[in-house]
Amino acid sequence: MKRRRSGAWRFTALRVAALAGNTFKEAVRNRAFIGLMFLAGAFLAFSLVLSSLAVTGQGNRVLLDFGFFSISLFGVLIAIVMGAILLHKEIDKKTIFTIIPKPVHRFEVVLGKYFGMLAILIVEVGVLSVLWLGLLWLKGAPVTPEIGKALLLIFLEIVLITAVALMFSSFSRPVLTGILATGVFIVGRVVYLVGEMLTARGGLFVDHPGLRPFGEAVVRVVPDLRVFDGSQEVLLEIPIRGSYLVSATGYCMSYVLVLLALSVLLFQRRDFT
């Protein structure tokens, strides 16, 4: 019995890998994706220009700041665009008709899409990071392990946002998915402010107590993306501890698991007509 179970999981892994591989191929052969990659590269190169214009001594700071900003921005952008488009396209172009009747579980289809997107994002973040670290090194800025850790945190944020986009795309159309996922991203970046406002003695929630439950719900549901921002630590040369990385990973994973479970539930019930 136990052997059969582990066999089943192996089969699931093989099928998810096949589905993810196909998703990866789709993105890599897509001009929009390649275009975004180039744009991100150009953005990074632009930071060189900016840093040379900066006040003496601030050049490296600009390089660092801008690098974190562009890698995270383009990562999130690509995650949202792919999340919005890839699953929807599969249904819209009816290619899903050839997949669902195959001996695959529906949850494997969702996981395949997700892991395929992650694979693309690993490549994207990896390429941009190498490019950026190269620039830093060329400019003689210190390349520290903290930068690597901060990049890892950025990647965790992208992993989470990808799951958010996938969840929305399992019931809505691309533009709406894009809007909703971007909304979660933006709110997630500032949700700690909402938390602070809730405990404040004055301000919005005191003036309008009716909004309180809404604010509380937002704080409870929306991920606090500040968790994944290590740029200040790098700039201020504060070490990022291993235990922090572990807890940030746990925070990310708990969201991802819930979001994937929701996506599967929503996808499971769908008619493909």
């Binding site: 089969f11 093989l14 099928r15 890998a17 096949a18 589905l19 591989g21 196909n22 191929k25 789709e26 052969r29 897509n30 172009k93 009816k94 290619t95 008709f97 050839t98 997949i99 009747p101 195959k102 001996p103 695959v104």
Partner: peptide, 27 residues
């Protein structure tokens, strides 16, 4: 084995690639 009504396929793939992908799904 199933042929859908209007067979839409991954248009970024070549014949071999799509059949290979389907074959993987059949393990």
């Amino acid at each position: 084995g199933y042929l859908p009504e209007q067979p839409y396929f991954y248009d970024y793939l070549r014949p071999r690639e799509i059949l290979d992908f389907f074959g993987k799904l059949f393990l």
